[in-house]
Design a protein around this nucleic acid. Structure first.
Lengths: 208, 208
DNA sequence: TGTACATCAGTGAACGCGCGTTCACTGATGTAC
DNA sequence: TGTACATCAGTGAACGCGCGTTCACTGATGTAC
């Protein structure tokens, strides 16, 4: 959610529609979330909705774009803060994973879910463009982690052979899987615990 | 899918309806999968569908029950085969993870998805009973792995402190996350690679 | 072996409701001169 | 400072289509006697 004070009235309504839609879609899925219920909660009419979004597919695209933007900002911030605390790639990475785990612990309630996973399990409903955006977001995660792990492996040659690709993907895998378990149980400890588990693995593999 | 030859004509149609529904639901989600398209592919009329299922919710329940049954059988078989090959808990576990990874590599096409994750991201559409079934299935996974890891930890005290709960959940987390990545990319290597990654972690933690 | 009845595995037509979308219109705010 | 016009942020009513569900009915197969 962007800062409310920098948004015009119309932009505020639009953000609110996106907030309501995202929450509902993560609970029921895209097809089961009707425009009718979104506008009911937002307190506008249906035509008001279509002033903001061309059609329902336009909503799905705007929603994903906003989600990916926010996600990118969070991870960039986590890594930037870790880099500021330690310049060594391994230690910085371990700090980043701790910061990330803490961040996920501090959610107000249990994790609402990840739009990427949600869309993935309803893929055929979305346009090729949206599917492409979704896929690409995971490639970005993979590349981000891969790059950091490479720098670590350079300075700390692992004793056992390490598959850097699989280890990079493991970050995404752990996050998506952890979210599912927390979502299923209404808890918020599984995701941070799993991130720390991943952190532990990276340390065991590389730490001298 | 049960053996075709042990099923009556009606049971065969029912299984076929479940097959078609499962494939469609994993691609589009539950709400976006219409009874109309299921019967079109099955080649029967709508009333024929309602002969087999009370309503659409009845279908969702039957689908999940069948999925969980199959899932249980697969894992039981993997562990039984591993136990037959080695009686030591750690080695049997490592063998089981290898067998599991191989099994996931041998899928005819890319992984179609996991109904548990699919339902999880559309939870509010399902009855409390179905949601309960879904949640419970993860508890079963957790318990199954927890029990095996405990036996391992007894015989091989880990050098570093190990959180057995988190490690047990990691199995489920890795599988759900791995499936999402394979599903997104249309590949089938991520899931087995991640299972082997998990296997590697267990070995590093416990192997003397 | 034949007949009566029950169950199985569906068919066909109709239903009403909710959904996404469109279209003509409107009051409030902003901008140009 | 006042007027004309444009844009913003919607309203209200209507639409048609597809969806899940129901109901009365049916031909084929199985079972009892």
């Amino acid at each position: 959610m962007a800062d409310v004070h920098t948004l015009s009235k119309g932009e505020q309504t639009r953000e609110r529609l996106l907030d309501i839609a995202e929450e509902a879609i993560l609970k029921k899925g895209f097809a089961a979330t009707s425009i009718e219920e979104i506008i009911a909660e937002a307190g506008i009419t249906k035509s008001g909705f279509f002033y903001h979004f061309k059609d329902k597919h336009d909503l799905s695209k705007a929603l994903l774009l906003r989600f990916l933007e926010e996600d990118k900002a969070i991870m960039a911030d986590v890594f930037a803060r870790a880099d500021a605390l330690h310049e060594d790639p391994l230690h910085s990475f371990l700090i980043a994973m701790k910061l990330f785990a803490d961040l996920m612990s501090d959610l107000p309630s249990s994790h609402p879910g990840c739009l990427v996973a949600s869309y993935c399990y309803q893929e055929q409903q979305f346009s090729r463009e949206v599917r492409e955006l979704n896929r690409n977001s995971v490639l970005v995660w993979r590349a981000r982690f891969r790059e950091r792990l490479e720098r670590i492996a350079e300075r700390y040659p692992p004793r056992v052979p390490v598959d850097l690709d699989a280890l990079s993907d493991m970050a995404t895998v752990i996050v998506e899987g952890g979210i599912i378990l927390d979502k299923l149980f209404g808890t918020k400890t599984t995701l941070p615990d799993q991130i720390l588990q991943f952190r532990q693995l990276v340390r065991v593999l590389f730490h001298p």
